[in-house]
Write a protein that binds this DNA or RNA. Structure first.
Length: 150
DNA sequence: GCCAACGTTGGC
DNA sequence: GCCAACGTTGGC
């Protein structure tokens, strides 16, 4: 089993939204590296940190799990969607996604600030300078350490 | 709202 | 293939 971290802007889709909907297709990822992690790395049952970005207190707010194998992101074919990609075809879809299932909301937000200050988390992709990846792997040792912080 | 870092596009 | 211009991400 692998561990992951997925970013979402709470104004767009928050941990509370996932809690209410229980499961959600993680659409709109338009970065090849992030796509590759979903397509090639994720398997149903993998665990995911749900991260709030671009907000007052960015940080890890919950836990989810991968619910499906990767499949084509429907929004790429929808001309009305802001994620529409005219360069992608149904025969050869460019963008893939997985469904993500709610597991729990953390008792508290484990803030980016707190993660940055923790020497045990040195090397985390999230903490690398300039890192903008919205879907990224988490090492097992980092996962276990962060779980212990809640 | 600012801006640094990064990714993509397209002319050459 | 290079690289300038542009668009996006996301912390602050």
């Amino acid at each position: 089993m692998n561990y992951w971290l997925m970013k979402s802007e709470p104004d767009t889709f928050s941990i509370d939204d996932l809690k209410r909907k229980k499961q959600e297709a993680w659409d709109g990822v338009r970065n090849y590296q992030a796509r590759n992690f979903m397509r090639d790395g994720m398997r149903p049952g993998d665990k995911v940190f749900f991260y709030h970005s671009n907000c007052a207190v960015p940080g890890i707010v919950g836990i989810a799990k991968v619910a499906t194998e990767a499949y084509p992101d429907p929004s790429q074919f929808d001309p009305k969607s802001k994620y529409f990609d005219p360069g992608s075809t149904r025969d050869n879809p460019r963008w893939m996604l997985v469904d993500v299932k709610f597991v729990k909301k953390l008792e508290r937000t484990i803030s980016l600030k707190e993660l940055q200050a923790d020497p045990a988390l040195d090397g985390m992709v999230l903490l690398r300078k300039g890192s903008r990846l919205s879907v990224q792997p988490v090492e097992a040792r980092h996962w276990k350490h962060i779980i212990g912080l809640e």
